[in-house]
Design a protein around this nucleic acid. Structure first.
Lengths: 353, 353
DNA sequence: ACCGTAGGTGGGAGCGCTCTCACCACATGG
DNA sequence: CCATGTGGTGAGAGCGCTCCCACCTACGGT
C-alpha cells in the first residue's frame, strides 16, 4: 500500500482530514502563508487571508493538534487533577461545581480540559509523571489530603499550577483559590450563639484537610468570642453517614447539646437524622448549621442553615488564574480568598425567634 | 538564538525533558531499539530491554505524546461529550456517575479523558469540529435533546462513538448503553397499583428526551395492565422546582389523585413538597414514586420509593464498549440495556401495608 | 557446502506543523 | 543613484516519534 492509496483509504473511511499543504494548494498560497493566515494573520495580505479563509471552510480544515504541539511545545490542554475519585467523593456537588467553573473559564480559549483522577499512592505517581511529561500546559489541583506532595513536586517542575483549596505545604508560591473557611466556622458559632444556643458542639471534617481545620479553628474562635465553653469536637468524613455516626458519638458524650455545627451539609443531614432518631426536634431542641449551601438541600423541606461557598465562581477564578500563569510564567500570582456568608434557614430558626 | 538555547528557553524553569534519542544513547542502543523496548518489547533482547528500562528510570523519560500521536494517528484520549453544561445539569449526580464510570473504564489503559461541554447551537459546531478533527480516538456522548444531530454526524465520520442513553436517531448502528426505562415506568405503575392506588398521574420528563419518553410509555402500559384509567400527564424538566410546578398543574386538574410517578427523584422531591403544601400527607394521601435512586435522597428521612439506575456501571460499560470500538473498528457493537429495579421505601408504603 | 528463516538491530524517511531566513517588491531618504 | 527599510512571500529545516527496510548474526534443514 503506497502513500497515496493510504490517504485515500482514510478519506473513504470518512476522515478527510486535509493537511496544511492541501489547504495552501487549495488557496493558491504557500504552506507558510497559510500557516500565518491561520495563526493571527500578521503579515498576510487581505487577498491571501480571504483565500485561506475560504479554503478552510471549503475543505473543513482543522489543524492537526499533535503536529502543532510538537513544534510549539504547547498542548492546548490543561489538567484538572482530582484525587480519590470514589463514587462517594464524586457525588459531592463540589466537584460538579469545580468542573463547571473551570470549563467556563476555558471557554473562549482553545484549551481543553483533561480530567485526571488518581486513586491511592501508586496511581498518583502515574499522574505525576503525566503532569511532568509535558502533556498539559498547566494543572488545577483540587487540594486534598496529600496535596502537600503535589504542591512540592509540581512547584519545582515549573508546570503552571493553581490549587483549589489551600494546600498544606506553602512556601512554593503556588497560587490558590479558597473560601475563608475560618470566617465561615466563626459565622456558624456566632449565629448559634446569637439565636440563644449555649451548649455547642461540632462535627468537624477530616483533620488532614485544610478546609476542615480552618473551619474548626474559626468555630472555636467564634465560640470563645461568644463567651461559651468550647464544646466537644468529633471528626467526620464529610458524608451523610459519617455525619450521623459522628453525631451519635457527640450526643452520647454530651446529651445536653442544643446547637451543632457540621462542617458540611451532607454531615449536617446526618446530624439531623441522628437528632431525630434520639427523639428530639430540629431546631426546637437542637439547632444545626451546615456548610456548603448544597443546592439539593436548599430545596429540601426543612431548610438547612448553612455557610455559602460560591464554588463555581471560585473554580472560574482558578481557571483564569491558570490561564494567566500559562501565558505569563514569570508573573507571581497571589492567592484569592472568597468571603464566607451565612444563609439562615429553618434548621436554626424554624420555630424559635 | 541557536537551537540549543531555544530548547532551554522554552522549557519553563529547567527540565530539558529527554528525548528518545537521549534515552537510546544512555542505554547504549539505537533509537529504534529503544522505541521497540518501550512499546511492548517485541524483538528486543533481554539485555537491551534491561538497559532501556534502566535508562528510563535514570533519565525520568516520558515519551512525547504529540510526536507519537503525529505518526501513529492515535491521540491516547477520548472525549466525554456533555451537552448543556448548566450548573443545573451538572449538579445532577447523573454526570458525576458518568464521569466516574468512564474514568474507571479507562483506568489501566493509557487513555485520558477529555471533557467536552457544549452549550447551545454555535458552540456545538465547535465541538463537532473538534471531534472530527482527529483530536481524540473516540467519544462517549451523553445522549440528550439534540442527540440525533450528533448521532448522524458522528456516525458518518467513522469516529468510534458510544452513546449513554438511547439516541433519537437510530439506524447508524451506533452502540449505546441505556437503562430499560420502559420497564422502569411500568414497574412504578405496577407498584402503585399493587399497593392499592387507583387514581394515578405522572410528572413525566422532557418530551424531547428518549429516557423520558420511554419511562412515560412504560408507565402508561403499566397503568393499562393494572386495569386503571390512564391518568393525567404533565411534563417537567427533571428538576425539583420543575417537579413542584408540574405537580401543582397535576393536582389542580385532578385533585383526587392518590398515586404519582415522577420521572426523576428530584422531580419527586418537588411533587412531595407540593402535596404537603396542599395539606396532604405522603404516603397516606398520595404515594410518590421517583426515578434514579439518587444517593442523597436515599439517606433522606422520608425514604423515596424509586427505580434504580446503576449509572456508574452503565458508564463503565460505555467506556469498555468505546475501547473495543477503538481497538477493533470493524466489529459491530450491540446496545447494552440494563434492567430497571424498583426500590420500595416510605414514600409509598410508609404507613399503609 | 547451500539457502532458508528466525531473532535482533540501526538507519532513514516521514507524520503535519511552525519558524527562521532569504528574498522580492516598492516605498522612502540621502 | 544607492542605502535602508517594510509588508509580504515561500523554501527549508526541524520538533520527537514510529515504521519500514536493509542488514546482520545464528541455526537448522537440504
Amino acid at each position: 500500500m503506497n502513500q497515496k492509496s493510504h490517504r485515500r483509504g482514510l478519506l473513504q473511511a470518512g476522515r478527510p482530514s486535509p493537511t496544511l499543504e492541501d489547504l495552501a494548494t487549495a488557496a493558491g498560497v504557500s504552506r507558510s502563508t497559510a500557516s500565518r493566515a491561520i495563526n493571527g494573520g500578521l503579515k498576510v495580505s487581505p487577498e491571501a487571508q480571504a483565500a485561506v479563509d475560504a479554503a478552510i471552510v471549503a475543505l473543513g480544515y482543522t489543524p492537526n493538534r499533535a503536529a502543532r504541539s510538537l513544534v510549539t511545545r504547547r498542548t492546548g490542554s490543561v489538567a484538572l487533577v482530582i484525587p480519590e475519585p470514589d463514587a462517594r467523593v464524586m457525588m459531592d456537588p463540589f466537584f460538579a461545581a469545580v468542573i463547571t467553573g473551570v470549563n467556563e473559564a476555558l471557554r473562549g480559549t482553545d484549551m481543553q480540559l483533561v480530567l485526571l483522577m488518581s486513586r491511592a499512592g501508586d496511581d498518583s505517581a502515574r499522574t505525576m509523571r503525566y503532569l511532568r511529561g509535558g502533556h498539559v500546559d498547566g494543572a488545577i489541583v483540587v487540594s486534598f489530603h496529600e496535596a502537600d506532595d503535589w504542591a512540592e513536586t509540581l512547584g519545582t517542575t515549573g508546570l503552571p499550577t493553581v490549587f483549589i483549596g489551600r494546600p498544606w505545604a506553602m512556601g512554593f508560591g503556588v497560587p490558590y483559590v479558597d473560601l475563608d473557611n475560618f470566617e465561615g466556622g466563626r459565622l456558624a458559632a456566632r449565629h448559634l450563639a446569637a439565636t440563644g444556643r449555649t451548649r455547642l458542639g461540632t462535627v468537624a471534617g477530616p483533620a488532614d484537610m485544610t478546609a476542615a481545620v480552618d473551619r474548626l479553628e474559626g468555630w472555636m474562635q467564634g465560640v470563645r468570642e461568644a463567651g461559651l465553653p468550647p464544646g466537644p469536637v468529633i471528626h467526620g468524613d464529610f458524608t451523610t453517614a459519617g455525619g450521623a455516626e459522628a453525631a451519635r458519638d457527640l450526643f452520647s458524650g454530651s446529651p445536653e447539646l442544643d446547637g451543632v455545627f457540621a462542617a458540611s451539609d451532607l454531615m449536617a443531614l446526618g446530624v439531623i437524622d441522628t437528632v431525630r432518631g434520639r427523639g428530639h426536634k430540629v431546631p426546637e431542641d437542637v439547632a444545626v448549621v451546615g456548610f456548603d449551601n448544597h443546592s439539593l438541600l436548599a430545596a429540601n423541606g426543612l431548610g438547612l442553615t448553612t455557610v455559602t461557598q460560591p464554588m463555581v465562581d471560585m473554580a472560574v477564578t482558578a481557571g483564569q488564574l491558570l490561564i494567566r500563569a500559562i501565558e505569563n510564567p514569570e508573573e507571581q500570582l497571589e492567592p484569592v480568598i472568597y468571603p464566607a456568608e451565612l444563609v439562615v434557614r429553618g434548621s436554626t430558626t424554624g420555630h424559635c425567634g
